[in-house]
Structure formats: structure tokens, C-alpha cells
Lab assay of single mutants.
Amino acid sequence: NQESVVAAQLIPINTALTLVMMTTRVVSPTGIPAEDIPRLISMQVNQVVPMGTTLMPDMVKGYA
């Protein structure tokens, strides 16, 4: 089963992602794949992401 990127903390809107903000977990439905974490660093979220929420492609500016 593929791991997806999950918020390790509350991420406010327009925050640039850092490694410490993200963790990985096997979730359903699947979100952004864990191997894309290096690509996500410094990208901004376009909404508030509560802790434990799976990051979906449409939540990250410039990802999709």
C-alpha cells in the first residue's frame, strides 16, 4: 500500500511547506504520494490544513 503525505500539524493558509509539517501514512483515499515530499518543500497550501489531514493535489499551489 502506498503512503500519502499527511499534515503533521495545523498548516495555516498560504504557508510554505517544510519537512517538519508533513508525515506519511497509508490512507484512503490516497493523496499526494510520499515520494513527492521533496517536491512539496517550499510550496504553499491554498487552504487551512488541519493536523492529520491528507494533502491532496488541489490543496498545494502549483502542484497539480
Rank of each mutant, 00 (worst) to 15 (best):
residue 55 L to F: 11
residue 18 T to V: 04
residue 39 R to A: 06
residue 43 M to Q: 07
residue 17 L to D: 00
residue 23 T to D: 09
residue 10 L to Y: 10
residue 15 T to M: 06
residue 41 I to E: 06
residue 30 T to K: 06
residue 46 N to V: 14
residue 41 I to F: 11
residue 54 T to V: 12
residue 11 I to V: 09
residue 8 A to Y: 11
residue 37 I to M: 12
residue 22 M to S: 00
residue 29 P to Q: 11
residue 14 N to K: 08
residue 54 T to C: 09
residue 8 A to Q: 06
residue 40 L to N: 00
residue 61 K to N: 08
residue 21 M to L: 13
residue 4 S to C: 11
residue 59 M to G: 01
residue 32 I to Y: 02
residue 33 P to V: 10
residue 56 M to E: 08
residue 23 T to C: 05
residue 36 D to T: 07
residue 10 L to S: 11
residue 2 Q to K: 05
residue 61 K to L: 09
residue 3 E to N: 06
residue 45 V to L: 09
residue 27 V to S: 09
residue 48 V to Q: 14
residue 48 V to M: 09
residue 18 T to Q: 05
residue 60 V to A: 02
residue 40 L to F: 02
residue 5 V to N: 01
residue 16 A to D: 04
residue 12 P to W: 14
residue 15 T to D: 03
residue 25 R to S: 14
residue 55 L to K: 01
residue 3 E to P: 06
residue 42 S to V: 03
residue 26 V to N: 12
residue 6 V to T: 10
residue 18 T to C: 04
residue 4 S to K: 02
residue 32 I to V: 10
residue 28 S to P: 02
residue 26 V to K: 04
residue 30 T to M: 15
residue 27 V to W: 03
residue 56 M to T: 12
residue 15 T to N: 05
residue 34 A to S: 14
residue 30 T to W: 14
residue 3 E to Y: 09
residue 23 T to K: 14
residue 5 V to G: 01
residue 20 V to I: 09
residue 14 N to Y: 07
residue 42 S to Y: 11
residue 24 T to Y: 12
residue 44 Q to K: 09
residue 24 T to S: 08
residue 46 N to R: 13
residue 27 V to K: 08
residue 47 Q to A: 07
residue 39 R to D: 03
residue 8 A to G: 06
residue 56 M to A: 12
residue 9 Q to K: 09
residue 7 A to P: 01
residue 22 M to H: 00
residue 35 E to A: 13
residue 35 E to P: 09
residue 11 I to L: 12
residue 20 V to R: 13
residue 35 E to V: 14
residue 4 S to L: 01
residue 60 V to E: 01
residue 56 M to H: 06
residue 9 Q to W: 07
residue 22 M to F: 08
residue 21 M to P: 00
residue 3 E to M: 06
residue 39 R to P: 02
residue 34 A to V: 09
residue 6 V to S: 04
residue 58 D to N: 15
residue 45 V to Q: 00
residue 25 R to F: 15
residue 4 S to F: 04
residue 58 D to E: 14
residue 23 T to E: 11
residue 47 Q to D: 12
residue 58 D to V: 13
residue 35 E to L: 05
residue 23 T to N: 09
residue 29 P to M: 09
residue 19 L to T: 08
residue 62 G to N: 15
residue 52 G to A: 06
